[in-house]
């Protein structure tokens, strides 16, 4: 069985395939091929959910499959194998993706002035706030200037930490 002990690996799998998906991963024999029907049987999870989870894992390169045709019936059987060794490279890909998104967000945060509803409904850029006469369109509360220097700082810090994760 595949034991997912690293808390980050667990969090990642939970994010991608959810709790049932994590159960499926942990029920898969390590280094061996297994059919989706067998996994559904031993976990008690519906076959549809098992297949959906396995395809999601496949999309993230965390599982591979091989098709085998039954010579008598002509039916195709899918044999699945989990690739826990690929978790780190999958996480590296996620880190690269997140760095790109954070860079885009950082530019946006630096290029705009923000106003927020005093009742916490939403945050607006200056242009939207003026269009609404500094009144919240949801609750009619007033919109007040919102300092975003902390957000800018945390994005910059986190980009550095994520970049270090790729170099370490």
């Amino acid at each position: 069985m595949v034991a997912v002990e690293n808390p980050i690996h667990r969090a990642y799998l939970l994010k991608i395939v959810g709790e049932e998906g994590l159960k499926i991963v942990e029920a898969m024999p390590e280094g061996e091929e297994v059919t989706d029907e067998h996994i559904a049987e031993i976990t008690g999870i519906s076959l549809n959910t098992v297949r959906r989870s396995l395809y999601l894992l496949y999309e993230h390169r965390l599982a591979v499959y091989r098709r085998k045709r039954d010579p008598d019936s002509g039916w195709l059987t899918y044999l699945w194998k989990i690739c826990p060794e690929a978790l780190d490279s999958a996480l590296e890909a996620e880190v690269r993706k997140l760095i790109n998104k954070l860079n885009a967000r950082l530019r946006y945060e630096k290029d705009h002035v923000f106003y927020a509803c005093v009742n916490g409904c939403a945050r607006f850029v200056f242009e939207e706030a003026t269009e609404n006469n500094f009144i919240c369109p949801f609750c009619q509360g007033s919109l007040e200037y919102m300092e975003n220097s902390t957000i800018v700082e945390v994005i910059e810090e986190r980009i550095k930490e994520l970049s270090a994760a790729l170099c370490s």
């Binding site: 990642y12 998104k101 270090a164």
Partner: peptide, 17 residues
């Protein structure tokens, strides 16, 4: 610990999946 910067408190990287 290498990938812990993907976490913010107990929220995992929102872009994953």
């Amino acid at each position: 610990d290498r990938f812990t910067p993907l976490m913010a408190s107990d929220i995992f990287d929102p872009c994953a999946g």
